[in-house]
Amino acid sequence: MTKTILIVDDSATMLLSVRNNLEIAGFKVETAEDGVKALGKLKAGLKPDLVITDINMPNMNGMELIRNIRALPGFRFTPILTLTTESQAAKRDEGKAAGATGWLVKPVGGADLLKIIRQVLPGA
């Protein structure tokens, strides 16, 4: 089964980088530039196996997005990873409190990214 991953980040560079790495590894990748767009996609029927979201974004930030996702039917158990920088240690805990499964630390290289994804996504 191809696993679908939704990446939410307002930086096109980050989206492109993560997308390339994941697609090479055989994942199906969907992207959104902010929380509002991401939520829109989920409400429109997208059912990713994993969501990776940035924290600082315009319109709807990562924390709000996570809380909103958990409130959607069908997304109670979906793994969510936050994208944080090394200086955002506090945000990681805040993310977990909001319902995230874990976090990634930017910059995420290809091998690390896959390793971490496989740690939270059974069967990936």
Binding site: S11, T85, P107
Partner: peptide
């Protein structure tokens, strides 16, 4: 401002 500097820094780290 913070958000922009933050993102730019994150990207440069790639």
């Amino acid at each position: 401002l913070f958000r922009m500097v933050h993102t730019l820094k994150g990207n440069s780290g790639l």
